[in-house]
């Protein structure tokens, strides 16, 4: 039997549609992705003041390129990478599935899974797809 697990359980929630977990400062409302375990870069508050904040991984492409050379076998080249302006603010970078992503294209997060490993665990990663 295959067990599905988030590769980054602190950052990626396997719900439908998926959610990514960043942080918000209780004192100044500053939003971050990823969540910062140490303190607020905006006001200096300690980690006790930082809550987790779930973002919907939707937004628009600010910049996009095709990667032709990569030091690891995964992801297989060529693959597309974009800077995504999340609807709720922060910028994140991610891998884009599908053809012809362009600056300004709207994207949403999807879950892709690896082939089950020897222990039957299939690892889930976040990718983006054109809306």
């Amino acid at each position: 039997m295959t067990i599905l697990r988030s590769r980054y359980p602190d950052l990626l929630k396997l719900v439908d549609p998926p959610l990514i977990v960043g942080g918000i400062c209780r004192l100044c409302d500053y939003l971050t992705f990823p969540r910062d375990p140490y303190g607020c870069e905006n006001c200096g508050s300690t980690s006790e003041e930082l809550d987790s904040y779930e973002f919907s991984p939707t937004g628009s492409i600010q910049a996009v390129v095709t990667v032709h050379r990569h030091h690891n076998p995964q992801p297989e080249v060529p693959f597309n990478v974009a800077v995504i302006n999340l609807s709720e603010g922060p910028l994140i970078k991610g891998i884009i599935e599908g053809n012809n992503p362009k600056v300004g294209s709207l994207v949403k997060g999807i879950i892709v899974t690896s082939k089950p490993d020897s222990e039957g665990i299939s690892w889930a990663d976040l990718r983006f797809r054109l809306v």
Binding site: A63, V64, V65, H71, V83, I92, K93, G94, I95, V103
Partner: peptide, 26 residues
């Protein structure tokens, strides 16, 4: 530093600057 990200090493420095080039050219 113990601050994880979702990119799994897929976005290395040259891709960071390739993305800046894409933005600049656009």
């Amino acid at each position: 530093a113990g601050i994880n990200n979702l990119e799994a090493g897929a976005i290395v420095p040259f891709t960071h600057f390739a993305l800046l080039a894409s933005e600049y050219m656009h």
